[in-house]
Design a protein around this nucleic acid. Structure first.
Lengths: 193, 193
DNA sequence: TATACCACTTGACATATATCAAGTCTCTTT
DNA sequence: AAAGAGACTTGATATATGTCAAGTGGTATA
């Protein structure tokens, strides 16, 4: 159950066997069936979730009922509502499973306790967050700078697995465009070739 | 010179006097006059910069020569091109001073050395990056979800100091809209009142 | 004091993208 | 095999925002 997780951690820091055993005790495993919620808007986000298998998404819902994708997370990714998790305020996001999934959950008190007991994990999370910042920044710039077509082309290039695995209507939402526009863009790109 | 910096650090972790003295040695102070560059697109970003006083901005420039604001940083903020700084690849951004500024610079080797010698700083940066993720995420959602007017209203509410201090054409760029559109939005908001 | 420059505004018009509505195709369920 | 649902496409039209061009007022500079 912890295979993917420790493989991921070991890319950033080297843990002893004892440290691994200690770390395991802070997590609760959880299975989620397709379409089940991990978090609903308005609730407090009690967990960070590491995805051992499957696929989840986080998104918010606007006044008109439209969904806006914030993140997709599959094997080897973390997903949470960072703000709600850390502040204890109500979540603005929903998180649910796109495919049946196996998760490792970590609450805030256990997260903090783990960082104290295994200081190497401070380093792991610092590095994890660095990468997160880089990718959020890239997405933000794309969103501000590019046309709908260029946003899509950049995604195709930078995240091809995402294009393969995620339905088109969710990709459209992730890019901040409508499914109709994305469909027309794809048609347009094919014509050009 | 380190007043603002240690005030900022002490919000997150408590340092001894010895630790403070040790930390100081990793930084190089630098003054920047208005309009001077800290980083130019294409160069490698050699530093993270902490702003002791003044105001800087990071931005990229698109094919048409238009600037797109990524971040503003004044007293108590960090600014860098995170990707270029960590990877050593060419920077996609420019960073320059909007006002005369005093900075504390930290190179990557010294950043890493500091984290080893003063492990509390791992914790400081982990927490700093957490906050950064939260604010980037909020901006991203706004960018994807909201109309130009709603983006501006959200900024007025969440970052009033920014509205005060930053020229309107740069705010427009930060929101991903044109200065003309922002001007009309502001007029429109006044009319409603 | 004159000059030039910059930030911002305003108007007319252009365009990318959204919206609404219908249609196709595939896959699942009965 | 039939029915229904879901994902995607396509067309007609609407709308928000961009583009281009001109004008105003303030402020720095010579």
């Amino acid at each position: 159950m912890f295979e993917v997780f420790f493989a991921h951690v070991s890319e950033k820091v080297t843990l002893t066997h004892e440290e691994q055993e200690k770390i395991k005790r802070f997590f609760s495993p959880k299975k989620l069936r397709k379409k089940q919620y991990l978090l609903q808007e308005g609730d407090v986000c009690k967990n960070m979730a590491f995805v051992e298998s499957g696929l989840l998404r986080s998104y918010n819902v606007d006044d008109k009922g439209l969904e806006h994708m914030i993140q997709f997370a599959w094997e080897g990714w973390w997903i949470t509502d960072t703000y709600s998790f850390l502040s204890g305020d109500a979540a603005a996001y929903n998180i649910d499973a796109i495919e049946d999934s196996e998760l490792l959950l970590l609450t805030l008190p256990l997260f903090e306790e783990m960082l104290v007991q295994v200081p190497k994990m401070e380093r792991y999370f610092r590095m994890l967050f660095q990468k997160n910042i880089i990718s959020k920044e890239r997405r933000l710039i794309n969103s501000i700078t590019y046309s709908a077509e260029d946003k899509y082309l950049d995604l195709v290039e930078s995240r091809p697995e995402l294009i393969q695995r995620i339905p088109q209507n969710l990709i459209a939402s992730y890019l901040g465009i409508t499914p109709e526009t994305l469909s027309r863009i794809r048609k347009n790109i094919l014509h050009k070739k």
